[in-house]
Design a protein around this nucleic acid. Structure first.
Length: 380
DNA sequence: GGAACCGGGCTCTGCCATGGGT
DNA sequence: ACCCATGGCAGAGCCCGGTTCC
Protein backbone atom coordinates (compact mmCIF):
# COMPACT_ATOMS: atom_id res chain seq x y z
CA UNK A 1 0.00 0.00 0.00
CA UNK A 2 3.02 2.26 0.24
CA UNK A 3 3.57 2.22 -3.50
CA UNK A 4 1.53 5.20 -4.59
CA UNK A 5 3.29 7.41 -2.15
CA UNK A 6 6.63 5.99 -3.12
CA UNK A 7 5.74 6.88 -6.67
CA UNK A 8 4.90 10.44 -5.77
CA UNK A 9 8.04 10.81 -3.72
CA UNK A 10 10.18 9.53 -6.58
CA UNK A 11 8.51 11.77 -9.09
CA UNK A 12 9.02 14.62 -6.74
CA UNK A 13 12.73 14.27 -7.15
CA UNK A 14 12.58 14.93 -10.86
CA UNK A 15 11.04 18.34 -10.58
CA UNK A 16 11.78 19.83 -7.23
CA UNK A 17 15.02 18.46 -6.07
CA UNK A 18 18.25 20.26 -6.51
CA UNK A 19 21.29 17.95 -6.93
CA UNK A 20 22.54 18.88 -3.47
CA UNK A 21 19.45 17.30 -1.96
CA UNK A 22 19.75 14.04 -3.82
CA UNK A 23 21.84 12.27 -1.24
CA UNK A 24 19.32 12.70 1.51
CA UNK A 25 16.46 11.72 -0.76
CA UNK A 26 18.17 8.58 -1.85
CA UNK A 27 18.29 7.80 1.81
CA UNK A 28 14.55 8.36 1.98
CA UNK A 29 14.03 6.03 -0.96
CA UNK A 30 16.05 3.18 0.50
CA UNK A 31 14.11 3.60 3.68
CA UNK A 32 10.79 3.28 1.91
CA UNK A 33 11.41 0.68 -0.73
CA UNK A 34 11.21 -2.39 1.52
CA UNK A 35 7.84 -1.37 2.96
CA UNK A 36 5.51 -4.14 1.88
CA UNK A 37 2.60 -4.49 4.29
CA UNK A 38 1.55 -7.89 2.96
CA UNK A 39 4.91 -9.48 3.56
CA UNK A 40 5.89 -7.50 6.58
CA UNK A 41 3.13 -7.58 9.17
CA UNK A 42 5.17 -5.37 11.43
CA UNK A 43 4.34 -2.89 14.11
CA UNK A 44 1.66 -0.60 12.72
CA UNK A 45 2.77 2.46 14.61
CA UNK A 46 6.34 2.40 13.41
CA UNK A 47 5.19 1.82 9.82
CA UNK A 48 2.93 4.79 10.12
CA UNK A 49 5.70 6.87 11.50
CA UNK A 50 7.91 6.10 8.53
CA UNK A 51 5.19 7.01 6.09
CA UNK A 52 4.51 10.12 8.00
CA UNK A 53 8.13 11.22 7.82
CA UNK A 54 8.37 10.55 4.12
CA UNK A 55 5.26 12.57 3.49
CA UNK A 56 6.50 15.37 5.70
CA UNK A 57 9.78 15.42 3.81
CA UNK A 58 7.96 15.63 0.53
CA UNK A 59 5.81 18.46 1.77
CA UNK A 60 8.80 20.35 3.11
CA UNK A 61 10.54 20.07 -0.23
CA UNK A 62 7.43 21.43 -1.87
CA UNK A 63 7.58 24.46 0.41
CA UNK A 64 4.59 23.52 2.53
CA UNK A 65 4.43 24.95 6.02
CA UNK A 66 4.35 21.55 7.69
CA UNK A 67 3.85 22.93 11.15
CA UNK A 68 0.76 24.76 10.04
CA UNK A 69 -0.53 21.70 8.22
CA UNK A 70 0.02 19.51 11.27
CA UNK A 71 -1.86 21.95 13.40
CA UNK A 72 -4.79 22.15 11.01
CA UNK A 73 -5.39 18.57 9.92
CA UNK A 74 -3.00 16.22 11.70
CA UNK A 75 -4.79 13.11 10.48
CA UNK A 76 -3.95 13.68 6.83
CA UNK A 77 -0.25 13.72 7.58
CA UNK A 78 -0.46 10.23 9.05
CA UNK A 79 -2.09 8.77 5.98
CA UNK A 80 -0.41 6.07 3.96
CA UNK A 81 -1.70 7.08 0.56
CA UNK A 82 -1.64 10.69 -0.46
CA UNK A 83 -1.43 12.54 -3.71
CA UNK A 84 0.61 15.62 -2.91
CA UNK A 85 2.63 15.24 -6.06
CA UNK A 86 -0.42 14.84 -8.26
CA UNK A 87 -2.03 17.85 -6.61
CA UNK A 88 1.10 19.95 -7.05
CA UNK A 89 1.34 19.03 -10.72
CA UNK A 90 -2.33 19.66 -11.18
CA UNK A 91 -2.32 23.08 -9.57
CA UNK A 92 0.83 24.17 -11.29
CA UNK A 93 -0.55 23.02 -14.62
CA UNK A 94 -3.58 25.20 -13.94
CA UNK A 95 -1.31 28.15 -13.41
CA UNK A 96 -0.71 28.24 -9.66
CA UNK A 97 2.76 29.31 -8.62
CA UNK A 98 4.81 27.07 -6.39
CA UNK A 99 4.13 29.44 -3.49
CA UNK A 100 0.39 29.36 -4.03
CA UNK A 101 0.39 25.58 -4.31
CA UNK A 102 2.37 25.26 -1.08
CA UNK A 103 0.17 27.73 0.72
CA UNK A 104 -2.95 25.84 -0.35
CA UNK A 105 -1.64 22.58 1.07
CA UNK A 106 -0.41 24.30 4.24
CA UNK A 107 -3.82 25.77 4.91
CA UNK A 108 -5.92 22.82 3.81
CA UNK A 109 -3.84 19.65 4.02
CA UNK A 110 -6.72 17.36 3.16
CA UNK A 111 -6.36 18.65 -0.39
CA UNK A 112 -3.57 16.09 -0.84
CA UNK A 113 -6.00 13.23 -0.48
CA UNK A 114 -7.92 14.10 -3.65
CA UNK A 115 -7.22 12.05 -6.75
CA UNK A 116 -6.35 13.67 -10.04
CA UNK A 117 -9.55 12.46 -11.58
CA UNK A 118 -11.54 14.03 -8.78
CA UNK A 119 -9.58 17.26 -9.06
CA UNK A 120 -10.05 17.50 -12.78
CA UNK A 121 -13.76 16.80 -12.54
CA UNK A 122 -14.26 19.39 -9.80
CA UNK A 123 -12.19 21.91 -11.68
CA UNK A 124 -14.27 21.44 -14.81
CA UNK A 125 -17.44 21.96 -12.77
CA UNK A 126 -16.05 25.23 -11.45
CA UNK A 127 -15.11 26.12 -14.98
CA UNK A 128 -18.78 25.97 -15.97
CA UNK A 129 -19.09 29.10 -13.82
CA UNK A 130 -15.68 30.72 -14.29
CA UNK A 131 -14.24 31.80 -17.59
CA UNK A 132 -10.62 31.04 -16.83
CA UNK A 133 -8.36 28.82 -14.77
CA UNK A 134 -6.66 31.84 -13.28
CA UNK A 135 -9.90 33.00 -11.67
CA UNK A 136 -10.19 29.63 -9.95
CA UNK A 137 -6.56 29.70 -8.87
CA UNK A 138 -7.09 33.04 -7.20
CA UNK A 139 -10.14 31.76 -5.31
CA UNK A 140 -8.22 28.68 -4.20
CA UNK A 141 -5.39 30.88 -3.05
CA UNK A 142 -7.88 32.92 -1.07
CA UNK A 143 -9.90 30.05 0.29
CA UNK A 144 -8.55 26.55 -0.31
CA UNK A 145 -11.15 25.11 1.98
CA UNK A 146 -14.02 26.16 -0.26
CA UNK A 147 -12.77 24.03 -3.08
CA UNK A 148 -11.36 21.08 -1.19
CA UNK A 149 -13.59 20.59 1.83
CA UNK A 150 -16.06 18.35 0.07
CA UNK A 151 -15.19 15.31 -1.96
CA UNK A 152 -18.68 15.09 -3.39
CA UNK A 153 -18.61 16.23 -7.00
CA UNK A 154 -22.13 14.96 -7.59
CA UNK A 155 -23.35 17.32 -4.93
CA UNK A 156 -21.50 20.17 -6.62
CA UNK A 157 -23.20 19.31 -9.90
CA UNK A 158 -26.57 19.30 -8.18
CA UNK A 159 -25.85 22.67 -6.62
CA UNK A 160 -25.08 24.25 -9.94
CA UNK A 161 -28.30 22.83 -11.36
CA UNK A 162 -30.26 23.88 -8.30
CA UNK A 163 -28.92 27.43 -8.17
CA UNK A 164 -29.51 27.86 -11.88
CA UNK A 165 -33.05 26.61 -11.46
CA UNK A 166 -33.72 29.53 -9.10
CA UNK A 167 -33.41 31.87 -12.04
CA UNK A 168 -29.97 33.12 -11.09
CA UNK A 169 -28.08 34.30 -14.14
CA UNK A 170 -24.60 33.14 -15.01
CA UNK A 171 -23.42 36.52 -13.79
CA UNK A 172 -25.09 35.87 -10.43
CA UNK A 173 -23.52 32.42 -10.21
CA UNK A 174 -20.15 33.90 -11.00
CA UNK A 175 -20.51 36.44 -8.23
CA UNK A 176 -21.78 33.78 -5.85
CA UNK A 177 -18.85 31.48 -6.48
CA UNK A 178 -16.39 34.37 -6.35
CA UNK A 179 -17.57 35.94 -3.15
CA UNK A 180 -18.97 32.97 -1.24
CA UNK A 181 -17.39 29.88 -2.75
CA UNK A 182 -18.44 27.84 0.25
CA UNK A 183 -21.99 27.94 -1.12
CA UNK A 184 -21.02 25.36 -3.71
CA UNK A 185 -19.63 22.98 -1.13
CA UNK A 186 -22.74 23.16 0.99
CA UNK A 187 -24.93 20.13 0.64
CA UNK A 188 -27.60 20.90 -1.90
CA UNK A 189 -30.06 20.09 0.85
CA UNK A 190 -28.68 22.87 3.05
CA UNK A 191 -28.95 25.36 0.20
CA UNK A 192 -32.47 24.18 -0.43
CA UNK A 193 -33.36 24.79 3.22
CA UNK A 194 -32.25 28.41 2.94
CA UNK A 195 -34.16 28.86 -0.28
CA UNK A 196 -37.27 27.36 1.32
CA UNK A 197 -36.85 29.65 4.30
CA UNK A 198 -36.63 32.72 2.06
CA UNK A 199 -39.72 31.63 0.15
CA UNK A 200 -41.55 31.12 3.43
CA UNK A 201 -40.51 34.56 4.65
CA UNK A 202 -41.90 36.07 1.48
CA UNK A 203 -45.18 34.17 1.65
CA UNK A 204 -45.68 34.84 5.33
CA UNK A 205 -45.26 38.56 4.67
CA UNK A 206 -47.93 38.34 2.03
CA UNK A 207 -45.56 38.44 -0.93
CA UNK A 208 -46.97 37.07 -4.15
CA UNK A 209 -43.67 36.10 -5.78
CA UNK A 210 -41.60 33.96 -3.40
CA UNK A 211 -39.30 32.75 -6.15
CA UNK A 212 -38.61 36.25 -7.35
CA UNK A 213 -38.04 37.40 -3.78
CA UNK A 214 -35.58 34.57 -3.15
CA UNK A 215 -33.66 35.23 -6.34
CA UNK A 216 -33.45 38.94 -5.53
CA UNK A 217 -32.22 38.33 -2.00
CA UNK A 218 -29.54 35.90 -3.17
CA UNK A 219 -28.34 38.10 -5.96
CA UNK A 220 -28.21 41.15 -3.68
CA UNK A 221 -26.61 39.21 -0.85
CA UNK A 222 -24.31 36.51 -2.16
CA UNK A 223 -23.37 35.49 1.36
CA UNK A 224 -26.85 34.47 2.37
CA UNK A 225 -26.42 30.80 1.49
CA UNK A 226 -23.48 30.38 3.82
CA UNK A 227 -25.47 31.65 6.78
CA UNK A 228 -27.50 29.38 8.98
CA UNK A 229 -31.27 29.37 8.55
CA UNK A 230 -31.41 29.85 12.31
CA UNK A 231 -29.62 33.16 12.02
CA UNK A 232 -31.62 34.43 9.07
CA UNK A 233 -34.92 33.42 10.62
CA UNK A 234 -34.01 35.11 13.91
CA UNK A 235 -33.04 38.30 12.10
CA UNK A 236 -36.24 38.42 10.08
CA UNK A 237 -38.32 37.86 13.21
CA UNK A 238 -36.42 40.54 15.07
CA UNK A 239 -36.84 43.09 12.30
CA UNK A 240 -40.49 42.19 12.00
CA UNK A 241 -41.13 42.72 15.68
CA UNK A 242 -38.97 45.79 16.27
CA UNK A 243 -39.29 47.98 13.21
CA UNK A 244 -43.06 48.14 13.31
CA UNK A 245 -43.34 48.13 9.54
CA UNK A 246 -46.19 46.78 7.48
CA UNK A 247 -45.56 43.44 5.83
CA UNK A 248 -45.09 44.94 2.42
CA UNK A 249 -42.72 47.62 3.74
CA UNK A 250 -40.56 44.96 5.40
CA UNK A 251 -40.67 42.82 2.29
CA UNK A 252 -39.48 45.79 0.26
CA UNK A 253 -36.58 46.43 2.62
CA UNK A 254 -35.49 42.78 2.65
CA UNK A 255 -35.76 42.38 -1.09
CA UNK A 256 -33.90 45.61 -1.73
CA UNK A 257 -31.10 47.35 0.09
CA UNK A 258 -31.81 45.42 3.28
CA UNK A 259 -30.95 41.99 1.91
CA UNK A 260 -27.46 42.30 3.33
CA UNK A 261 -28.46 42.82 6.93
CA UNK A 262 -29.88 39.30 7.14
CA UNK A 263 -26.23 38.29 7.25
CA UNK A 264 -25.44 39.94 10.50
CA UNK A 265 -24.91 37.86 13.56
CA UNK A 266 -28.21 38.04 15.39
CA UNK A 267 -26.71 39.51 18.53
CA UNK A 268 -24.87 42.20 16.57
CA UNK A 269 -28.00 43.10 14.65
CA UNK A 270 -29.94 43.56 17.87
CA UNK A 271 -27.13 45.46 19.52
CA UNK A 272 -26.56 47.80 16.59
CA UNK A 273 -30.28 48.52 16.38
CA UNK A 274 -30.65 49.24 20.10
CA UNK A 275 -27.52 51.37 20.24
CA UNK A 276 -28.53 53.33 17.18
CA UNK A 277 -31.84 54.16 18.81
CA UNK A 278 -30.13 55.11 22.05
CA UNK A 279 -27.62 57.30 20.30
CA UNK A 280 -30.23 59.17 18.29
CA UNK A 281 -32.28 59.82 21.39
CA UNK A 282 -29.13 61.01 23.19
CA UNK A 283 -28.45 63.60 20.51
CA UNK A 284 -31.97 64.92 20.42
CA UNK A 285 -33.61 62.60 17.91
CA UNK A 286 -36.22 59.92 18.49
CA UNK A 287 -36.43 56.15 18.33
CA UNK A 288 -38.58 56.61 15.27
CA UNK A 289 -35.66 58.39 13.58
CA UNK A 290 -33.68 55.16 13.85
CA UNK A 291 -36.43 53.26 12.10
CA UNK A 292 -36.72 55.83 9.33
CA UNK A 293 -32.97 55.63 8.91
CA UNK A 294 -33.16 51.86 8.55
CA UNK A 295 -36.09 51.92 6.17
CA UNK A 296 -34.28 54.45 4.01
CA UNK A 297 -30.92 52.74 4.23
CA UNK A 298 -30.86 49.42 6.03
CA UNK A 299 -27.10 49.00 5.82
CA UNK A 300 -26.67 51.48 8.68
CA UNK A 301 -27.28 48.42 10.81
CA UNK A 302 -24.02 47.04 9.52
CA UNK A 303 -22.06 49.82 11.13
CA UNK A 304 -20.81 49.03 14.61
CA UNK A 305 -22.27 51.24 17.29
CA UNK A 306 -18.94 52.86 18.15
CA UNK A 307 -18.34 53.78 14.56
CA UNK A 308 -21.79 55.11 13.86
CA UNK A 309 -21.70 57.05 17.09
CA UNK A 310 -18.45 58.74 16.02
CA UNK A 311 -19.84 59.53 12.60
CA UNK A 312 -23.02 61.03 14.01
CA UNK A 313 -21.01 63.12 16.46
CA UNK A 314 -18.79 64.46 13.74
CA UNK A 315 -21.73 65.39 11.52
CA UNK A 316 -23.67 67.00 14.35
CA UNK A 317 -20.61 68.99 15.40
CA UNK A 318 -20.48 70.37 11.89
CA UNK A 319 -23.98 71.72 12.37
CA UNK A 320 -25.82 69.00 10.47
CA UNK A 321 -29.14 67.97 12.04
CA UNK A 322 -30.55 64.54 12.82
CA UNK A 323 -33.35 65.30 10.40
CA UNK A 324 -30.86 65.92 7.58
CA UNK A 325 -29.04 62.69 8.34
CA UNK A 326 -32.30 60.79 8.53
CA UNK A 327 -33.18 61.98 5.06
CA UNK A 328 -29.74 61.40 3.54
CA UNK A 329 -28.60 58.30 5.44
CA UNK A 330 -26.18 57.34 2.70
CA UNK A 331 -23.70 59.85 4.02
CA UNK A 332 -23.18 57.47 6.94
CA UNK A 333 -21.67 55.00 4.49
CA UNK A 334 -18.56 57.07 4.11
CA UNK A 335 -15.63 56.44 6.38
CA UNK A 336 -15.18 58.63 9.42
CA UNK A 337 -11.91 59.82 7.99
CA UNK A 338 -13.53 60.78 4.71
CA UNK A 339 -16.42 62.55 6.46
CA UNK A 340 -13.99 64.50 8.64
CA UNK A 341 -12.00 65.60 5.65
CA UNK A 342 -15.06 66.63 3.65
CA UNK A 343 -16.60 68.54 6.52
CA UNK A 344 -13.32 70.36 7.15
CA UNK A 345 -12.87 71.25 3.51
CA UNK A 346 -16.42 72.56 3.31
CA UNK A 347 -15.92 74.64 6.40
CA UNK A 348 -12.89 76.27 4.79
CA UNK A 349 -15.03 77.54 1.92
CA UNK A 350 -17.78 78.60 4.29
CA UNK A 351 -20.29 75.99 3.18
CA UNK A 352 -23.56 76.27 5.06
CA UNK A 353 -25.23 72.87 5.62
CA UNK A 354 -28.31 74.57 6.93
CA UNK A 355 -28.86 76.51 3.73
CA UNK A 356 -27.34 74.18 1.12
CA UNK A 357 -28.05 70.73 2.52
CA UNK A 358 -25.92 67.67 3.12
CA UNK A 359 -26.23 65.97 -0.25
CA UNK A 360 -22.82 67.36 -1.15
CA UNK A 361 -21.32 64.75 1.18
CA UNK A 362 -22.95 61.91 -0.73
CA UNK A 363 -20.81 61.79 -3.84
CA UNK A 364 -17.72 60.14 -5.15
CA UNK A 365 -14.39 61.65 -4.23
CA UNK A 366 -13.87 62.81 -7.79
CA UNK A 367 -17.17 64.62 -7.90
CA UNK A 368 -16.70 66.03 -4.43
CA UNK A 369 -13.31 67.44 -5.31
CA UNK A 370 -14.65 68.96 -8.52
CA UNK A 371 -17.39 70.63 -6.55
CA UNK A 372 -14.94 71.85 -3.97
CA UNK A 373 -12.75 73.28 -6.69
CA UNK A 374 -15.69 75.22 -8.02
CA UNK A 375 -16.47 76.61 -4.59
CA UNK A 376 -12.88 77.77 -4.25
CA UNK A 377 -12.93 79.54 -7.59
CA UNK A 378 -16.19 81.29 -6.74
CA UNK A 379 -14.56 82.49 -3.53
CA UNK A 380 -11.65 84.04 -5.42
C1' DG B 1 -24.82 71.36 -16.85
C1' DG B 2 -25.00 70.30 -12.27
C1' DA B 3 -27.53 67.99 -8.62
C1' DA B 4 -30.03 64.17 -7.07
C1' DC B 5 -31.17 59.46 -7.26
C1' DC B 6 -29.90 55.02 -6.96
C1' DG B 7 -27.91 50.49 -8.29
C1' DG B 8 -24.21 48.05 -7.63
C1' DG B 9 -18.96 46.92 -7.20
C1' DC B 10 -15.41 45.28 -4.02
C1' DT B 11 -16.11 41.87 0.01
C1' DC B 12 -15.32 36.47 3.70
C1' DT B 13 -12.06 33.02 5.96
C1' DG B 14 -10.36 29.93 9.28
C1' DC B 15 -11.56 27.64 13.00
C1' DC B 16 -14.40 24.47 15.97
C1' DA B 17 -18.09 20.96 16.90
C1' DT B 18 -20.47 17.06 15.66
C1' DG B 19 -22.08 12.86 13.69
C1' DG B 20 -21.21 9.09 10.79
C1' DG B 21 -18.26 5.67 8.82
C1' DT B 22 -14.51 2.39 9.27
C1' DA C 1 -10.05 5.59 18.11
C1' DC C 2 -9.60 7.83 14.32
C1' DC C 3 -10.65 10.56 10.18
C1' DC C 4 -13.79 12.75 7.03
C1' DA C 5 -17.50 15.64 5.66
C1' DT C 6 -20.34 19.10 6.89
C1' DG C 7 -22.70 22.87 9.52
C1' DG C 8 -22.09 26.94 12.06
C1' DC C 9 -19.83 30.74 14.07
C1' DA C 10 -17.16 35.43 14.81
C1' DG C 11 -16.44 39.90 13.07
C1' DA C 12 -18.67 43.82 11.19
C1' DG C 13 -18.30 49.20 5.35
C1' DC C 14 -16.86 52.13 1.78
C1' DC C 15 -17.16 53.85 -2.49
C1' DC C 16 -18.11 54.87 -7.69
C1' DG C 17 -20.50 56.56 -11.42
C1' DG C 18 -24.61 55.92 -14.81
C1' DT C 19 -29.02 57.83 -15.36
C1' DT C 20 -32.58 60.96 -14.51
C1' DC C 21 -34.24 65.23 -13.05
C1' DC C 22 -34.50 70.17 -12.88
Amino acid sequence: MALPQLWTSLNLQRTFIQPSLLTSLQWVRTLVTPTQPSTQPSNDASDKEEENNLLLDNLKIMGVDVEMAQKRQPGVLRKTITNERGLADFLQFKGASREVMASIISRFPRSISRSEQHLEERWQLWRTVFKSDSEIVSILDRSPESFFRSSDNDNLKKNIVFLTSLGLTSKDLHRLLTTAPRTFSNSVELNRQMVDLLKDVCSSLGGMEPSRFTKDVISKNPFILIRSTKRVRANVEFLQSSLGLTNSELLGVLQGHGAGILDLSHEILKRNFMMLQEKLVAVGGTKKDAITLIVNHASVLFISHERISDKLDRLLQAGITVKQIREKPRILDFSLENLRWRVDELRKVGYDFDRSGVAVLDSSRKRFEARLQKMYSVEE
